[in-house]
Structure formats: C-alpha cells, structure tokens
Write a protein that binds this DNA or RNA. Structure first.
Length: 418
RNA sequence: CGGGGCGUCGUAUACCGGUAGUACGCUUGCUUUGGGAGCAAGAUGACCCAGUUCGAUUCUGGGCGCCCCGACCA
C-alpha cells in the first residue's frame, strides 16, 4: 500500500486524556480512532493487525476441529431468562433496548446461552457429538468504567469457542487440545515466554477455570507463577491447597507478578445444557445433558498487550506475525533515479508476496523516519542516493535497530525466506 | 457506583470579567531535502443550558462528555 493514499496521519502528540500507552501510540500512529469512552474504531493499519491476530487464532482453532460461524449481536431475552442471567442484578454489563414493535432485546456481551439454545436444533444424538464452534464477535458490555485504552472497553472483539461433547472424558480431551492451541497462539504472536496457563476461580459452575495470563505491569491481576513448570495461580485462589495438589508445585516455588488476562477457558459441565434443555440420546437411548466448554480469547485486548509489551520510546514495535505490513519501504528524495528504483523495488517485493507499506510521500527524511519508527513495521528499507551509488538498499530492523546494506536479490531472499 | 481531576482552533498548550495568543497540523507561494525544515501570506476555536453582570470563554449552578483511583470484571 502506498502511504500517500493512506487516509490516516501520524500525530506528534497524543490527546491529553489518553494515558494508557496502548491508546496513545495507537492513536498517534493512526491505528485506532476513539469514538467514545471505551469504544475504538480500527483504522486500516489497526484493522490489518486485528486480521493478522484473528488469522493466527483461526488457524489454531480450525486445527483442533473448530467450525467458524457468527452469532447475532442482538439477543433474545427469553434465552437469558432461562439461565437467570437477564436480570441486571445478576449481570451488570447488559446493554438493553426496546423493540419499536414491543418487547426487549439485549446486546450480546457473551454468547454461550444463544449458541447453546441454537444447538438444540442440531444436536440430538451422541452421533452428532462432539462439535466445536467458534466465532469472532464484537462483544458489547456496559462497563461502569472503561479504562486502559483498548484493554478494557465497552466494545471489543473476542474469539469465543464452545465445545459440545457427550461427557467429561470427551470434554477433557478437547479442553486439553484447546490449551495447547492457545499456547501455540501466544507463541506465534510473540508472547509465549511471558504467558502462563493460570489456575483461577471457577465461579458458579466448577471449582476452577483456566486463564491465560500475560505478565505485564499494566495487568489488573496478580498471579503467582512457576517458571519451570510454566504454570501460574491467580491470587483469587492462591490460598486454596487444592491448587497445589492439581499443579504439583509448592507454594514457595512461586513468584508474584502482575499480569493481564488474555484468555479464559471454562468447563460448564452439563449445567447450562440442563438449564436450556440441550440433551442428546446416548447409545442406550437415555437422555443426557450435553457437556459444554467455553473458550474465550480477547483479540483486541491481545493487540493492546502487544503494544504495551513491545513498544519503545520511539513508538510501536510489532512482532512480525501481527505487523500490519512486513516492510516499510521508505523513499528518500524525489530524484528520478530514486523514484524509479523505489517503484521498482515496491513492485518486486509485492510481486514476491511481501506486504509493503510504501512511503512515497514527498516529505522530509526526518518526518519519514519518525513516522516509520512510530508505525513500527518490522523492517524498514530505505531507497536513497546514498546507497544506490553502490547498488544497494538500506535495511533497518525496527526492534534491534540493526542496519545493513543489501542488494535487490539479497533483499528479496532475506524478506521471503526469513 | 464512591472519590478525585479536566473540558479553549484538528492536536497540544497559554492568557483574560472588556478585540482569545502560541506551536504542530491544514491552504497558497518560494526555498530546502538522511532524523519531525525556513520565510511569507491565509483559514479554523471557548461542550451545552441557566444565573450574576453594562458586558461571561473567564464567576455561580445544573447538564453532558473525558481521564484517573477504588469497587466491579460468569
């Protein structure tokens, strides 16, 4: 993409009321636009990052047998009444509205009820099971207080998967597979070494749930990590001896850190199915509740976490797997030779499947470099008289700052194989 | 929801009970071109409502919005 055609612009300063690093940088670099408190639009650059993250998650969910679909944003109150979660006293994040034709609707803050209700149409025999379905949905939550930029908004994108299985045993199998899939997701986006499978409170349904917590000072949670075993315990269940039995670790071996929840997986067992009436017939013809598991992963929050963890004092630094582009091609100067070479390189790279943001604007070098640093694309390739005289291009790694001079063929092989 | 803070061109930031200034951005022109350029000329602003006052962007009250701390976050 040509930067001269990108409608967003970078800014020198962040709006004064944005304090969160993720919001400051994402707004300054033109990735997001704040519509209102806790509600952000994702502009072309931000959209590309989201899509990169989603595609990684999508691949991993498909790999464990997930079937992608999409539920509705508007929800039927009747479904939630069956599980006693329509009442504002029970769920305090509801957005609700009235239909002009009469009656109420809810705005989806979660989807396990509607999906399970829907599944009654399709699951009736053990032969229909197991099924794993997932979606990327915009969740709407009437949070009392939005905060931390895109980390905790009233509107955010989440991947939620649901597993429908015959029994505990089948459930455990997929549950374990999803844990592995999540670990791969966090590895792939570059957070593997600081993201921990964490024991947490199970709420009303089970004794424990599992969270995926990424160590970060901006986190809202306190967890206790066991580095060798790569597991952790959330403070909320820290004192329960059962945890240590399950984990097989000693309390003294843990260290306390701040962390942010990026995923949460949950075992509903048969409870929700019983409430909603989702039963199947087993081989003996007996009616059994379908065993439900729920697997959330915050897509937009993950993007915020990546900003918080990798950004430096010059701006964003994207891990390659989620960067909006692979290469920031920067043309310096407007001489014919430079222009021709830059255009040629742009064609060559895109022709070889490399995603390129081409800064073809007629602005000064300092501004281009500053913008390039701020936008945070992994590789910067500079085309200028300075290196053209030796037939080379300057290549700068955003994260390390390492600079090298490469010929066209070296550059293409470097960018297409690395 | 409890507590605190803040609303001035697009952004940031001054000042003031009496013509609202600066920087960046934007428009036009010339120069400049490897780390957010220079000169010149422009365009653009007081969140809303009420009160006090000869006069309110400024003071008072209410509303709305935004941020932070806490609570909340199956």
């Amino acid at each position: 993409m040509r930067q001269s055609q990108l409608f967003t612009k970078t800014r020198r300063e962040a709006p004064k009321d944005e304090v969160a690093k993720n919001a400051q940088l994402l707004i300054r670099a033109g990735y997001v636009y704040k519509e209102m408190a806790g509600v952000y639009a994702y502009l072309p650059l931000g959209f590309r990052v989201l899509e990169k993250i989603k595609n990684i998650v999508r691949e991993e969910m498909n790999a464990v047998g997930g079937q992608e679909m999409i539920m509705t944003g508007l929800q039927n109150p009747d479904v939630w009444k069956k599980t006693d979660r329509w009442d504002d006293e029970k769920v305090d994040v509801w957005f609700k509205s009235e239909l002009k034709s009469g009656g109420e609707v809810g705005f989806g803050w979660s989807h396990e009820e509607p999906i399970t209700e829907m599944m009654k149409q399709y699951l009736s025999s053990y032969r229909d099971l197991p099924q794993y379905v997932y979606q990327f949905q915009t969740k709407l939550r009437n949070e009392l207080r939005a905060k931390s930029g895109i980390m905790r908004g009233r509107e955010f994108v989440m991947k939620d998967m649901y597993s429908y299985t015959t029994d505990e045993e089948a459930h455990k199998k997929i549950y374990g597979s999803v844990i592995d899939a999540y670990i791969r997701v966090f590895d792939r986006v570059g957070l593997g070494d600081r993201t921990f499978l964490t024991f947490a409170s199970g709420g009303a349904f089970t004794k424990f749930s599992h969270e995926f917590q990424t160590i970060s000072d901006v986190g809202e949670d306190t967890i206790y990590v066991h580095d060798a075993k790569k597991v952790a315990v959330n403070k909320e269940v820290y004192d329960e001896p059962v945890v240590y039995e399950e984990l097989g670790v000693k309390k003294e071996e843990l260290r306390e850190v701040k962390a942010i929840e990026v995923g949460n997986i949950f075992d509903f067992a048969g409870i929700k199915s019983e409430q909603l009436g989702l039963y199947y017939k087993n081989e003996a013809g007996e009616e059994m509740p379908v065993h439900l598991g729920s697997y959330g992963l915050g897509i937009t929050r993950l993007m915020g976490v990546l900003v918080e963890i990798f950004a430096d004092d010059k701006g964003l630094v994207w891990p390659e797997a989620v960067a909006p582009f692979r290469v920031h091609l920067v043309q310096l100067g407007t001489e014919d030779e430079v222009k021709t070479e830059a255009e040629e390189l742009y064609r060559e790279l895109t022709g070889n499947g490399v995603e390129v943001l081409f800064d073809d604007r007629d602005v000064r070098a300092g501004e281009k470099f500053a913008d390039s640093d701020l936008i945070g694309i992994p590789q910067r390739v500079v085309v200028s008289q300075k290196t053209l005289t030796e037939g080379k291009f300057e290549c700068v790694d955003r994260q390390s700052g390492t600079t090298s001079h490469k010929s066209l063929s070296e550059l293409i092989s470097y960018l297409t194989h690395a």
